[in-house]
Design a protein around this nucleic acid. Sequence first.
RNA 1: GCGCGGUUAGCUCAGCGGUAGAGCGCCUCUCUUACACAGAGGAUGCCACAGGUUCAAAUCCUGUACCGCGCACCA
Length: 917
Amino acid sequence: MLSKVYDPKPVETKWADAWQKDRLFIPCPSPKRKPFVVVIPPPNITGALHMGHALTYTLQDVLVRYQRMLGREACWAPGTDHGGIATQNVLEKALKAEGKTRADLGREEFLKRMWAWYKECGATILNQLRKLGCSLDLNPDNVRFTMDSKRAASVYEAFRSLWAKGLIYRGARMINWCSRCGTALSDIEVEHEDEKSKLWHIRYPFQDGSGSVTVATTRPETMLGDTAVAVHPEDARYKGMSGKMLKLPLTHRSIPLVADEGVEKDFGTGAVKVTPAHDPLDFEIGKRHNLEIIRVISFEGHMTKICPSEYAGLSVQAARKRIVEDLNTAGLLVKEEHYKHSVSKCSRCNQHIEPLVSEQWFVKMKSQAAPAIAAAEKEEVKFYPPSWKKPFTDWLNNIQDWCISRQIWWGHRIPAWYCRKCSGPGLKFSDRGGLSRVSFAQGAKPVVSFEKPPACPDCGGTDLLQDPDVLDTWFSSALWPFSIFGWPEKTKDLEYYYPASVLVTGYEIIYLWVARMVMSGIEHMGKPPFSQVYLHGIVRDRHGKKMSKSLGNVIDPLAMIEKYGTDAMRFSLMAQTLGGKDIPFSEETIIGGRNFVNKLYNVARFIQMYLPARPGPLTAERPDELADRWILERYAAALDRSKAAMTEYDLPKAQDALYSFVWDELCDWYLELAKPRLAGPDKEKVMGLLLELFTGSLKALHPFIPFITEELYANLKLYLDKSQATSHRSQVKPDSGEQRRAGYLLEESWPAAAVAASDASALMEELMGVITQIRTARAQFEIPPGKAINALAASNDASALSRLKAGAGYIKLLAKVENFTLGVGLVKPPRSVSAISGPFNIYVPMDGAVDLEKEKGRLAKELERVRAESAQCLVRLNDPSFAARAPAAEVEKIKARSKDSAGRISRLTIILEELSD
RNA sequence: GCGCGGUUAGCUCAGCGGUAGAGCGCCUCUCUUACACAGAGGAUGCCACAGGUUCAAAUCCUGUACCGCGCACCA
């Protein structure tokens, strides 16, 4: 006998290995079948998978397995992402622990270590995906990496093509600089956070001694780089002053007062200091007024040498403190106010971002955004939930050029080369404090080439240097939907599988990734990379807080798998991914999943008890009792509901329909009714139906909980008629010589059941109501479940009574009734408990005396309930406008309910009166 | 500042126009040979607030409050 409790671990390991070994997930293009393609969001190789990965990959696996069972050629190609800054930070952290920096190692050695890390971490991640049950073929020949040679070719081609079209350029612009990561960032990699700070009011005196102008700033240290003070041209307070010179405090420079529309009259003093090198707005003002750009903050986050010597070299924080003190001493600090404002932080390391002017590579986005917006508007790319369409198009409508160069080492190096000779002495690479920057002579033009060009096309010089920067990691991610199929090579896969069916990912990367894929798909492939985008939420802790190490609320999916099994975790994740909302997750929700998996295991155990020793198909003849007809109807309904929910990406609903069918109907009712029949003449027919329904449920549940279903099916399928096992692929995919196990559940068809409507449900529900009433009476008077009782049912409705008579067997069985008497006008026996169900009065005689007060209380409460119901009906029926305006069916329904409750009231009243006598 | 969500049982959430639901937790009874990771039964809700639309509102509309989350160059 098998253990009573299911142990998932050996089972899950066994099947995960078998699926991989038999290479069941390797897609094979076939003109006969429509592909179903899911583009995997490649996990960054930054470490182990977290709960968010578990969610997104489970979701995708459910869709892929489901579509595979519907007969589509499912393609879900695995891969990992090099993850740029995030991954480089992992290694830098490790180096720091060794007391080293990346500069100590040098670029070449550092990259060697990064590749070693990729090998280790990449393998770990793939193994974790296998444990998650993902139906990905993880054989090395099928796994992609954003930095492998094929993807490098894709990246180069995309760069070359954009460059050739003039969509890539290099120039000095205001960018976001993270001095901790040592690199520029794009706008979306910057997060904004409210921070308490101060607003300092500083007086700038006029050079001619005619008073002063007071400016307000949150960043006093940048004043050393001020090259103007700006006011609004129509600000009366500063009328006629524009063009006058001001003395810049703490320096020996003087700067002009300029008038600019960009200044907000009503803010602060109406005068703003202008630091073109360190503020985006100031940069714009500077351009309009041709102001000098003085960079006073270095890439390392220190005050530069241009600053007066007492400040040069100080950190930004130290300089701020010192400057405020000095201004105060000089009597130029007018006031200090408490102030809350939003500051920019690096999304990778949470350090303050320094806006500064720097030469970087950019992609022009406006022209690429336009067709992407159109695709969303026309729903060629459709969002689930649809509410994401607006944020998507809004962002694209306001898109800025994309800064794609990063001053790190890990990534695709920018394929641009510079001729030393042509560029002149201005071309030089510098390496300061671990940062590589390059500066160029005016007009130096790079040559775009994947490999080092043999000679400079202009002067024939052979001393060419490659740009030291690498591309933003999202540059390669943006190409993923087609680079995974080998683009720019025109492969068969690319032709068959592009565009994908659906992209599933978290909403937090809708701009970072989704929008860019849509744009580059249209740009390079001529059409959007997928037609549907399913955006899910973020896994949070049970109270909705983001999981973070510092809060200590992180749940490790691998630990949960270890403890409860993958199926249990998948089940509980899928139960909660509704409507793209964030998912509150806690360990206890997994227990629900585990319990269900255990339930299935025990149903199988039950069935196996009655299975003949020698495997072989059971009879296909169906039993035809009420319960049989009823359960078939319920089964068909559950499959329908589940299927309908799947097409709407409502996975919780799809899963729940099957869950409640199995637990609440198949187990709680049908199985119990089947028990005695399994010892009778109907045995084989009942077993046949039970097996059909249960294996069908396993099939339908397989996408959600692949392991337990595969396991149980493997044991039961030997008893199934061959017509019930229908694989899509066995015939399309001939054995490649190797011995391959056949008959996997995952290759079966998703079940179908067509059942004609009948009265079975209504009849069954009537019986269930009576059974529940008797059970309730038993429970209220604490009759032990094992103890048999007698019961009587009385009614004036003869046809109802005959229905009940037909179902008496079920009542006796499920309510544990020994003698069940029924008839018209039966008299309530002394010392009995009463109940009402539909048209029936039910009496349950007790052994001893009945606690009259308890019984009266119980019935009085029921009476009160029915009276309320009746009153509610009457209110509506007495309202003439209800009859006039409500649909006829509704009026009929209420009339029937009213009549029914009136009858119950009188019957209850009589019973209560008799009790009081 | 603009935008988007949320507010329903102790907790986490479904329901989105016709008698308030699930899971977990709680209480009672049962270890009855599928399952105590179970079975049977039970308690628990002014469905955030205020107006409106409707024969009928948790459900639609309009406001308000509180809580989240995006986007945004007001120094």
